[in-house]
Design a protein around this nucleic acid. Structure first.
Lengths: 82, 82
DNA sequence: GAGAATTTGTACGTATGTATG
DNA sequence: ACATACATACGTACAAATTCT
């Protein structure tokens, strides 16, 4: 995945879209832990603030739950938007 | 209003609580513009990030709407949580 | 159980872009 | 054209919770 700074969608939205798609496609099934904010930061070459904001989007939407010290985990499908 | 860094609630939550109360009490009626992020930053002695996060809480709750170049305005009561 | 490492939470600051007046 | 105000991104530091050694 490559962040496009010229795109209409800002980086944190691009990252959220990317992760959401991977969740929906089953790459990260419910209960599975997502890559950490730092891992995404290193992989994508963005600031942690940016990966955090992407995560926040998915939390707000109900796809994931973040827990200090534990990481970010995919919620049961019942909690996903329909 | 004085931010308490020792309190259980983090500063941005304290600020959100404070603003929400003022909205509910009618100091900022629907349509009224709230103080800008920078005004709150200067008044409370916190970073703009912190006032922004407080605003974000109120946006998420439906109390206010923020518009680039215009400021933050109180929503109609119908949009407030019940 | 103790301590280190990991991971998220929050706050600080700075710079630039976009929309409005 | 200019000033104002929010939007987003960069970076840094420390705290709190959890996990690992």
């Amino acid at each position: 995945m490559e962040v496009d700074y010229e795109a209409a969608k800002p980086p944190h939205v691009q990252i959220a879209d990317w992760l959401r798609q991977r969740i929906i496609e089953g790459e990260f099934p419910p209960g599975k832990r997502l890559p950490t904010e730092k891992a995404l930061q290193d992989e994508l070459g963005v600031a942690r603030t940016t990966t955090r904001r992407a995560m926040r989007v998915l939390v707000d939407e109900g796809y994931i739950l973040t827990t200090p010290g534990r990481g970010s985990h995919v919620n049961p499908k019942e909690m996903w938007p329909k």
